[in-house]
């Protein structure tokens, strides 16, 4: 080959939805530039290369849910010089990680043995990989060199990350929150009521917190360019928490949001905290499987979920 050596790329997806791979295609026309600079090798969704050739870079999306996922993760680590944890599931467990509060048996019951439209009465038990006890983020199983959160990360971040790899520089890892690109203005209001997503029609210019909507934009890393609050939908934290929340034991989604929201509205801080605990499974869905969130001393997600389910 006379041209400059292409960068070898292996890609894999573990327990996730595949959206992080579709998002790569969503760099649209620029995909052709990238294809010109890299050699895509193992990538089950695109190529027919079944083994794991040596690669400069490995992109792994998805968390570890089964023993098979663990094995594949190890294959990627062994074959790739650098491994990138790609997307929220790989980094924090993502939505599959919201199974944290449930045992493997409970999951198998819900899907197979106590499922309303399933007439058989057994769970699969031969030829399938056993479930791990919990959903495990990638870096608890293999070493990870870089992280790109997002559910999925917006194409702008993906393109920069891939370009950085091609150019041999560090990607621009901005630390802004979703608020940074949100066009709404934070104003003090007299709002007294906490609202759900479907509750009324939000004012298009005013911060959702000011209007009583529990938007997680201020505690969520921007890897999305803020589409949700811009369209009138609360941020649900899909790119995972900010570094501050991850690294400081006394900071947490509910305390940070409650502090901010109680200053912006007439809703008492304690009421907001209590409401977010009751809805803990929704608010912490994306990152609860991560030790950085799950092992905070005040994070009692199993208790909160159990209480909500008992009341049902």
């Amino acid at each position: 080959m006379n041209a400059a050596r292409k960068i070898g790329l292996n890609l894999e997806w573990l327990s996730d939805c595949g959206g992080c791979h579709v998002a790569i295609v969503d760099v649209h026309e620029k995909i052709l530039d990238i294809l010109g600079a890299v050699q895509i090798q193992h990538c089950p969704v695109l190529t027919d290369i079944k083994d794991y050739p040596h690669a400069d870079i490995g992109i792994v999306s998805g968390a570890i849910r089964t023993e098979h996922d663990r094995h594949v993760a190890q294959e990627m680590r062994a074959s790739c010089d650098k491994v990138i944890a790609w997307g929220t599931c790989a980094i924090y467990g993502g939505i599959p990680g919201a199974a944290l509060a449930h045992s493997r048996e409970e999951i198998l019951q819900a899907v197979y043995t106590r499922n309303p439209t399933t007439r058989t009465n057994e769970a699969p038990h031969s030829q399938v990989a056993l479930l791990e006890k919990q959903v495990i983020p990638l870096d608890e199983v293999i070493g990870v060199d870089m992280y790109l959160p997002g559910c999925p990360p917006h194409a702008a971040f993906i393109f920069d990350a891939l370009l950085a790899l091609v150019e041999g520089r560090a990607p621009k890892a901005r630390q802004e929150t979703v608020c940074a690109r949100c066009t709404r203005s934070m104003k003090k209001s007299e709002e007294t009521r906490l609202k759900s997503n479907h509750d009324g029609i939000p004012d298009p210019d005013l911060c959702l917190l000011s209007q009583g909507y529990v938007c997680l934009g201020s505690v969520t890393l921007d890897r999305c360019l803020s589409p949700c609050p811009s369209q009138g939908v609360m941020c649900t934290g899909c790119a995972g928490p900010t570094m501050q929340i991850l690294t400081e034991p006394n900071r947490d989604l509910r305390t940070e949001v409650a502090d901010r929201m109680s200053r912006l509205t007439a809703i008492p801080r304690e009421e907001i905290v209590a409401s977010m605990e009751r809805s803990g499974k929704s608010h912490y869905a994306y990152a609860m499987a991560s030790k950085m969130v799950g092992e905070k001393p005040t994070f009692l997600i199993r208790k909160w979920i159990a209480e909500v389910e008992e009341e049902a």
Binding site: S15, T66, N115, Q127, S279, A285
Partner: peptide, 19 residues
Amino acid sequence: VVNELRGFERILVGMEADR
């Protein structure tokens, strides 16, 4: 042989319907 299970039927229980 499909070799992955996430169990959304269980995960969704306890979440807010509007999500």
